[in-house]
């Protein structure tokens, strides 16, 4: 095989894909502001995306907070900075780990579910059926999922923040010998509104990425069961990568 031709083909494929995603996103954004709005579907999706993600997000945040406290204590010990545990835990959780870990977990749950559902609708012609019944599939399928994800992700992350800090507190007080009241006071004094808000803004962006990519991969799935499987995998992988990339960009914008 000609290596130069291979590079060319890969480049064309990449540009084609970027073009497709852009067209899809512009159509999706238009559907957010164009009636009709399906309020009941938005509510249903908020329940699915937000409420049913609570257990998985809660557990992840708790253990992450605990591990973080442990690592900072052990690492800080080398330079005599163990006292920084409460401060770094609260900063790390609210600014970075809360939004990122919660979003990655939700990406695994929700982007996959969205891609599988919409992908199955695609291959069984249900999306075509919507069009023939004078219903725009973007309004009916894409807009409710994006709106629900953008609204519920900040709420989920807010809860993840609290549970994560609590995880750090439990480990620090039970295992590392910190004083309960002093730990909480230290956390509270150090925390600024911006630390939390920046994390919630990130969460909203990640919510958009999760829903939009789940819908995109589902809409473009083809070829029966195998195609739906591939769409599901691609949705989780692309959403996760984009979440991490977007997180880096936002961190460098917010905190510099």
């Amino acid at each position: 095989m000609n290596p130069i031709g291979g590079v060319g083909r890969a480049t064309i494929a990449l540009i084609t894909e970027i073009g497709r995603v852009s067209l899809f996103l512009s159509e999706a954004l238009r559907s957010l502001v164009r009636p009709p709005f399906f309020w009941a579907l938005i509510g249903q999706q908020m329940l699915r995306i937000g409420y049913f993600s609570l257990p998985v997000v809660g557990f992840t945040a708790f253990f992450t907070g605990g591990a973080l406290a442990l690592q900072i204590f052990i690492g800080g010990d080398r330079v005599g900075a163990e006292a920084l545990v409460p401060r770094i835990v609260v900063l790390g959780i609210t600014r970075e780990l809360g939004p990122v870990i919660a979003s990655l977990m939700v990406a695994g749950r929700v982007a996959a579910a969205i891609a599988a559902e919409i992908g199955t609708m695609r291959v069984t012609e249900q999306i075509d059926a919507l069009t023939t019944l004078s219903t725009n599939p973007f309004n009916y399928l894409v807009a409710p999922r994006i709106i629900a994800a953008v609204l519920t992700m900040p709420l989920l992350v807010f809860i993840a923040d609290i549970v994560g800090v609590f995880g750090g507190y439990v480990v620090a007080t039970l295992d590392l010998g910190f004083n309960n009241a002093a730990y909480l006071q230290n956390t509270y004094d150090f925390l600024r509104t911006n630390d939390v808000v920046s994390g919630l803004v990130k969460a909203a962006v990640f919510g958009f990425i999760i829903a939009a990519l789940g819908c995109y991969q589902g809409f473009n799935s083809k070829g029966g069961a195998q195609g739906v499987g591939k769409a599901t995998t691609d949705a989780v992988v692309t959403a996760s990568i984009l979440i991490l990339a977007a997180n880096f960009v936002m961190t460098s914008l917010f905190f510099r």
């Binding site: 609708m121 069984t124 012609e125 249900q126 075509d128 023939t132 019944l133 004078s134 219903t135």
Partner: peptide, 28 residues
């Protein structure tokens, strides 16, 4: 237009009557 799809293409998330009424409730 009305269209009968090969595989039916019924919306599996909705009961039968809502499927039949879909063009009326959502389209109109």
């Amino acid at each position: 237009f009305g269209m009968l799809f090969q595989g039916g293409a019924l919306f599996d998330s909705l009961p039968v009557w809502e499927n039949v009424a879909f063009g009326l409730t959502h389209g109109r």
